[in-house]
Computed example of a mutant assay.
Amino acid sequence: MGREDVELRRALEFVRGFARRRAPRVVDVPGGFAVLDDRYPGSYDDNKLVVWAGDDPGVVLEAAERVLGGREHRQVNVDDDALGAAFAPTFAAAGYEHEETLVMVFRGAPPAGPPEAERLEVAELLPVVRESWRATLPEASEEVVDGLARRIETRLRGADRVGFRGVRAADGGLAAYADLYAHEGVAQIESLVTLARHRGNGHARALMRSLLAETAGADLVFLLADAADWPKDFYARLGFETTGRTHSFLKTP
C-alpha cells in the first residue's frame, strides 16, 4: 500500500470514527453504518448513512429508506471513489443529488512560530455561528437556526481533542473561526468560516496558518473540501494535496 493509500485510509477512518463517537445512535447497515440524532432530525450531517463496501446500490437505497424513514431527507455518504461513481446512476434515477468531496492532506512545511489563533469556548462561538447560519438561511425560523448552531456541542465527543479556534478583526470582533479535531496522531481541520463582513482581508489564511502551526506534530493533517467549489484551490496554495475523493447523495422533498 502506497503513501497516498495509507493517508487516505487513515483520514477516512478518522472521519468515520468521529461520526460514530458524536452520534447518540449508530445503526449497522450493509456496507457501513448510519448515525442518528433525534435532537436535530433535519441535520444531514447528524442523520446519514456512511458506506464504503458492497456492490448493490439498491440495497443501500433500501437501507436509507428504512433507517432515515422518520426524516424528511435521505443522505448517503460513500467513502470509496470507485464505489460512489458506480452507484451514481442508480441514485440519480432515484432522485438523489450527487456531490463529490476531496480528501486533502497537508504536505507543506508547517508555519514557523507559535499558533496565533484564539481558543474559543462554545458559549462565545454560538452567537457567531447563529449569525453565519442566519446569513446562509435568511428564511429559516429562529428555532431552525438555533438548532443548526447548537450542533457544534455534539462535536466535543468526536475525538480525543476537539477545539474551536478563531482570529479577530481590527475592531476586536471575531472574523473567522474553524474546528480542530485530533485523535491518535491524526488531525482534521473542519468548518472554516469567515464572516461575510470580514471577507477578503486575509483572516482565513491567518487562521489556517495558525492551525497548521498547532498541528505540526501530528502524523497526518487533513481536511475535506467540496470538489466543485473554490476553497479547494485556496487550500492547495497552503500546501494541501488531494489524496482521494468521496461521494455524497442527498434526496430532499
Rank of each mutant, 00 (worst) to 15 (best):
M1T: 14
M1R: 13
R3L: 15
R3Q: 13
R3W: 15
D5Y: 13
L8N: 12
E13I: 04
F14T: 07
F14K: 03
G17C: 06
P24F: 03
R25H: 06
V26W: 05
D28L: 05
P30I: 02
P30D: 02
F33A: 12
L36N: 06
D37A: 10
Y40G: 01
S43F: 04
Y44D: 12
N47C: 01
N47T: 03
K48W: 13
V50W: 15
V51D: 00
D56S: 01
P57M: 00
V59L: 05
V60I: 10
E62L: 07
A63Y: 06
A64P: 05
E65A: 02
G69E: 02
G70F: 15
E72A: 07
E72Q: 13
H73N: 11
R74F: 09
R74E: 12
R74A: 04
N77T: 12
D80G: 04
G84F: 15
G84E: 12
F87P: 11
T90P: 11
F91I: 03
A93M: 07
G95A: 08
T101H: 14
L102E: 13
M104I: 12
A112L: 02
P115L: 03
A117M: 01
E118I: 09
R119T: 11
V122H: 01
E124S: 09
E124K: 01
T136R: 07
L137Y: 15
E142K: 02
V144I: 06
V145T: 10
R151D: 10
L156N: 14
A159H: 07
D160T: 13
R161I: 10
G163H: 03
F164K: 01
R165T: 06
V167W: 06
R168L: 13
G172W: 08
G173H: 13
A175E: 08
A176C: 11
Y177P: 09
A178W: 08
D179L: 15
H183F: 11
E184T: 06
G185Y: 04
E190R: 11
T194R: 09
G200N: 00
H203G: 04
A204C: 10
A204I: 06
A206W: 07
R209T: 00
S210A: 02
L211D: 00
L211G: 00
A213F: 09
T215H: 10
G217M: 00
F222I: 05
A225L: 07
D229Q: 09
P231G: 03
D233V: 14
F234Y: 02
R237K: 13
F240C: 05
F240Y: 05
T242V: 12
T243A: 15
T243K: 06
H247F: 11
P253F: 04
